[in-house]
């Protein structure tokens, strides 16, 4: 475990805490894409199939349970909580998620390290995570005034991606058993690039002390 990996996991965790805080205390999910949240739940379910069979470390298992539990409960909040669901911006969150799920699944069937059930689903989860943020970014662009919690949520998610890339570079040079193949690198870099535009406007609004507003 290096500092980049730990910091990446912590910003990922922070992004989820910010989101849960918004739903639990303010009872609002305004500006949050249910489509993206459902995709993340699917990402974790298909990636952590090894949770009961392969033990890496206590840290690893606890984090997996955290990501599974929180992603599923966020979807539950947005769909069924009688107050929270009223603030869901259904009319603007129109991105069709199977447009992302289907190509990712086909790609995972074709390009994978090993053609086994678990390996294909693990690869699928990597491809899907890379693009899962798209419905959220589309919704942000359609939202007039983005509140601070939503902005921070996406910021922490983007920071997590950036830190994971630093982690891979670090591990590549320091860990002789660690040689990632193209799959993780490519999908990881694609995912991080998707945030570049958001980061630009996030930092600009922060420096100007203005509300975050993405151009159409």
């Amino acid at each position: 475990m290096n500092i980049f990996r730990l910091a990446g996991d912590m910003t990922h965790l922070m992004s989820i805490v910010v989101l849960l805080l918004k739903m639990h205390t303010i009872k609002s999910c305004a500006g949050i894409s249910l489509k993206t949240q459902e995709l993340y739940a699917l990402v974790f379910i298909t990636r952590y199939l090894d949770i009961f069979t392969d033990f890496v470390s206590l840290y690893n298992t606890v984090m997996k349970i955290f990501f599974l539990g929180t992603s599923i409960s966020i979807v539950w909040y947005m769909r069924y909580h009688k107050v929270v669901k009223q603030s869901y911006d259904k009319d603007h969150d129109t991105f069709r998620h199977y447009f992302l799920i289907l190509p990712c699944f086909l790609l995972a069937l074709i390009i994978n390290d090993e053609f086994t059930f678990r390996e294909v689903l693990w690869t699928f989860s990597l491809y899907l995570e890379a693009v899962a943020i798209i419905p959220q970014l589309v919704l942000l662009q359609r939202t007039k005034n983005i509140d601070n919690l939503t902005g921070n949520y996406v910021f922490f998610l983007g920071a997590y991606r950036g830190l994971y890339i630093l982690n891979w570079i670090y591990r590549y040079f320091t860990d002789s058993h660690y040689r990632r193949k193209g799959i993780t690198w490519t999908s990881g870099i694609v995912q991080t690039l998707l945030y570049a535009d958001f980061f630009y406007y996030y930092i600009r609004s922060w420096r100007r002390n203005e509300r975050l507003n993405l151009p159409a």
Binding site: D9, D50, D54, V56, N60, D175, H177, Y178, T184
Partner: peptide, 10 residues
Amino acid sequence: VSPDNGHDEL
């Protein structure tokens, strides 16, 4: 779990 392909990451 082999770390070769990053299965030890989250």
